[in-house]
């Protein structure tokens, strides 16, 4: 395929007087893992919300595989091939891990209330196929033991993992991850980086990831964008961004985000 998977041009969105994202240009090429970083409140999650159509940008466009999705409905996005996770985890809390992974396959399954209510032929087979696919994904993520646990009873780290699985079972081309390491310890963070890379290779993914953990980002990403107050202040390979004076400036006073540490 030619051209970028995701292309964002001049994206701008305001909340009242606050310009949360300001004229952002961003692209993700096929197979790339791109990082989107910046201090708290920089507008990273807002960019995700514009891509996945929860927010309507005031200006600018979002193209996915050459198609303009700036006016699409939020529920259409996953059908196009964009799946995401959320910073604070948005799972279906009363469902089991398996149930959530079945919800992740919502658009892949035929639907119809009458068809379901009458259990017309095919319903059972669809269901079995989806369950099998979900089980494979649970296995891949090492969640088989938690398959039948209601997700609200799982620790935060595992919930994040279930959410990742739910995004992956939808068979996306582009994965948006909002702070995947939250709730994980140092060792798990390393494992997570490996996992994301493996998933990228296995499922032919492109990945856009928002993350505060700098060593994770630097190790994982092919390219980085740095946001500050909604503006893009730097872009490039991790090594270049790390030494960028504007970036160091933006992060000053945020000790937890020591860029130089790595």
């Amino acid at each position: 395929m030619t051209g970028p998977v995701l292309e964002i041009t001049d994206l701008t969105i305001r909340f009242g007087g606050l310009v949360a994202v300001d004229g952002l240009d961003l692209r993700v090429n096929a197979g790339e893992i791109v990082g989107l970083i910046g201090p708290n409140g920089a507008g990273k999650t807002t960019v995700f919300n514009c891509i996945s159509r929860f927010y309507q940008p005031d200006r600018g466009t979002v193209h996915f595989k050459g198609r303009d999705i700036t006016r699409s409905g939020s529920h259409e996005i996953i059908r196009f091939g964009i799946a995401r996770t959320f910073q604070n985890v948005e799972l279906c809390r009363s469902m089991t891990a398996l149930g959530n992974l079945l919800v992740g396959q919502h658009v892949a399954m035929r639907s119809g209330v009458i068809r379901d209510g009458l259990r017309l032929p095919g319903v059972g087979a669809d269901e079995a196929r989806a369950t099998q696919r979900a089980d494979e994904m649970l296995e891949l993520l090492g969640l088989t033991g938690d398959r039948d646990h209601v997700v609200s009873t799982l620790p935060f780290g595992l919930q994040k993992l279930v959410e990742l699985g739910r995004a992956l079972v939808s068979d996306p081309a582009l994965l948006l991850l909002d702070e995947p390491t939250a709730g994980a310890d140092k060792q798990e963070i390393q494992g997570l980086a490996d996992l994301i890379r493996r998933m990228r290779d296995r499922f032919d993914l492109s990945v856009l990831v928002v993350e505060h953990d700098m060593s994770f980002v630097m190790g994982l990403c092919d390219r980085l964008y740095v946001l500050d107050f909604g503006r893009r202040i730097a872009e490039g390979a991790p090594a270049d961004v790390r030494n960028d004076s504007a970036v160091i400036e933006a992060y000053l006073g945020e000790p937890e985000l020591e860029v130089t540490e790595v």
Binding site: F54, H75, E76, I77, I78, F86, R166, S170
Partner: peptide, 8 residues
């Protein structure tokens, strides 16, 4: 939110 993101 989750439902919409999953295509419901």
């Amino acid at each position: 939110i989750a439902a919409r993101a999953m295509g419901v």
